[in-house]
Design a protein around this nucleic acid. Structure first.
Lengths: 206, 206
DNA sequence: GTCTATACACCGATAGAC
DNA sequence: GTCTATCGGTGTATAGAC
């Protein structure tokens, strides 16, 4: 159940550990490739192994189980979005509503751009997969960062953050479920954020 | 790929057909039971078969495949909600916002009450399962009925309906994903509908 | 017509040789 | 570290019993 998250790994001391770490990364890359090709749920260890020139049982030296592989992918995906959001939050801030719209659109497009990744990050589509605390950590940090940002805009109650995430989740879900590749719900983003901002008494732009 | 939807089946003429129909219903009931017990994705034909005193291959006389079984369950679930919504729409209408809140809460609670059913109806959690047009029909009718209702409240554009479904989907998703059994997002229902109604220029109650 | 027995290909996972 | 061999599990095709 426990294993180290490749992306967040800091101290790989010996060269053996570095070698092993790069093998993990190679396997992970192959797993993403396979998932994009055949679907997240259709991932098989034999396929992943073949892509890195191994046999399926050999993967067990690098990952405890298939779920551990999913787990590492989950952690990678959220760590990746955390980087995006960090860079976004650090930027010189615009008007409150502009900030809300930018963060909403950034997350929306991050999800819609890669439906397989979104499926792993946000849907619970793999029957018995539950992310480990280690893999879940960057997701928690994303949410904490969002809470902080909302707070600075004057939205300090939990309900305000809960509503914001629900609105985003709903738009993304509907877009991907009913019109993948389209923009029918993407077009509602700004309007939805404005509606939300008004509800939350965030001052208007002009 | 094609087969008849048990729930909507109208004319079972001969007694053989009736017998066969009741066998299908028995299998479906066993499938729901198994899904609730072990999870939707963990459903196995051997388990379902055992519950009705059969062997796994025997199910193939009643259903073309495991996916056909999922498909029939999908159709059953949506047909069931269609009945609920029909009865609700037929009732003497209250104020516009009351109507919106009632329909929102009805769908929300229908979904949250049975997460396994919701997973099948609204999430795409089964890897290669796509509902057939026959099974999807009641879902389409639910949406058409909703559009008609919104129209009568003065919300006639597609965007208005799209936004309403997205708001609902988001609240349900977050409730079930982050706090199954709780009411943290359920408590946001009325507020969200009011926010939406204001955006859509639906007159206030008082 | 209804069901069973058998079999097949594939899966995740383990044991142990090298 | 990576292999081969193998285990118990799955969905499913088919042949045939009755």
């Amino acid at each position: 159940m426990s294993y180290s998250l490749t992306v967040l790994e800091v101290s790989s001391r010996t060269w053996q550990e570095k070698r092993r770490e790069s093998a993990r990364q190679e396997i992970l890359a192959a797993a993403w490739e396979a998932a994009h090709e055949h679907g997240l749920g259709a991932l098989t260890l034999r396929d992943v192994a073949a892509r890195v020139g191994m046999r399926a049982p050999s993967l067990y030296w690098h990952f405890d189980s298939k779920m551990a592989l999913y787990d590492a992918m989950f952690g990678q995906a959220w760590a990746s979005y955390l980087e995006v959001q960090k860079e976004l939050v650090a930027r010189p801030s615009a008007s409150p509503r502009r900030v809300l719209k930018t963060i909403a659109r950034t997350f929306f497009e991050f999800c819609v751009r890669d439906p397989v990744r979104h499926e792993l990050m946000n849907l619970r589509s793999i029957p018995r997969f539950t992310p480990s605390p280690e893999a879940y950590a960057p997701a928690v940090e994303v949410l904490e960062q969002l809470r902080g940002l909302l707070m600075r805009l004057g939205i300090s109650d939990d309900a305000g953050a809960d509503l914001f995430t629900a609105l985003l989740a709903g738009l993304i879900d509907q877009q991907l479920a009913n019109e993948p590749g389209g923009d029918r719900w993407a077009r509602l983003l700004d309007r939805t954020v404005d509606m939300y901002a008004t509800e939350m008494n965030v001052p208007q732009d002009d």
